[in-house]
Write a protein that binds this DNA or RNA. Structure first.
Lengths: 168, 168
DNA sequence: TTGGAATGTCAACAAAGCTGACGTATTGTA
DNA sequence: TACAATACGTCAGCTTTGTTGACATTCCAA
């Protein structure tokens, strides 16, 4: 460990040792399970999956978004998204309307029922997030966000930044 | 927003608003994609998946671990793990040996080839982690870990803590 | 010696990703 | 006005990774 660096350097760069990085990797793996656990439980009862949750979340965030836009945010193929979207539309959770300016586009919105499910899911997920934030404190939260943002792919970060400052 | 709290309280609890929590949720989602992107690319070439990576990672971390122990760490069914394990054993990356004390148990080890793949995967993942850590700085990293740990399920945290302090 | 624990296997299935091909409507452009 | 490109949907087929359920084997322990 410490890679043969002089001790005073080793001290200031301690957080970059392989050991520290490994702990971060494992923390990320285990935490992500907790992160998805509560929504997963709710979705399982309704025979939906995580893919439905993601679609619902981002349609809620960007009402009227097009299929193509959603595709690039989610980073999946249109066939994969379409399967999810179809079931959500059939079940009356999502409404798809033909574009005004460009009639090739479909604009996606949550229906009242869709909004209700969105709230149920995000309430559960927020509850856990809130507990974690409260336990860790505001400075830890700032660091948490900094590291996560630095971990994203370039393109992904653009999507993230783009919807970061949209008001609720 | 701010829930009608007095302004001085709203200030100190700003990090607990729904808006802040939503950003954290989205950061977690987008960052996890980056987190798995590099290993995924390597694994795809070798026609393995994330499940193989996870098995390899934790066998590396706990050489000689039993199937049952691995099962509870990974949180999947034995049938699911077994399929992954079988292919790794067939391909000569993992060795399964009958237990000495308890001959029902199988103890799992990485072979030389398994260790080589483990190193390739974790090098890639650590590189990204290191870049993120370096960009964010040591205090951010401490906060990052605090929040992640608080986000885990109770049982999961036990697994995490148990292998946290094992030396490399 | 019998019950239960640990492991493994077979079968069947589902969610969610992928590729490739094709059809249709619409739009922009040469 | 033709033609190419775009946006979307769909069909078919495949893969990975998870799930249940049923059942056999081996072995420890009461």
């Amino acid at each position: 460990m410490n890679d043969g660096l002089p001790p005073q350097m080793g001290q200031s760069l301690l957080f970059l040792t392989d050991e520290q990085l490994r702990k971060g990797i494992e923390a990320m793996f285990f935490a992500y399970r907790g992160f998805t656990a509560d929504p997963d439980r709710i979705l399982a009862q309704k025979s939906y999956g995580r893919a439905h949750h993601r679609a619902i979340h981002f349609i809620h965030r960007s009402p009227g978004t097009t299929v193509n836009n959603l595709l690039s945010i989610l980073g999946v193929t249109k066939q994969s998204l379409n399967r999810v979207l179809r079931s959500l539309i059939e079940d009356g959770l999502v409404a798809s309307t033909v574009g005004q300016r460009d009639k090739r586009e479909r604009h996606l919105h949550l229906t009242a029922a869709g909004e209700a499910l969105e709230r149920e899911l995000s309430d559960a997920q927020r509850d856990r997030m809130r507990a974690a934030y409260r336990a860790a404190g505001p400075e830890a939260v700032a660091g948490f966000r900094q590291v996560l943002e630095a971990m994203m792919d370039e393109e992904t970060r653009h999507h993230y930044e783009a919807m970061k400052d949209k008001p609720e």
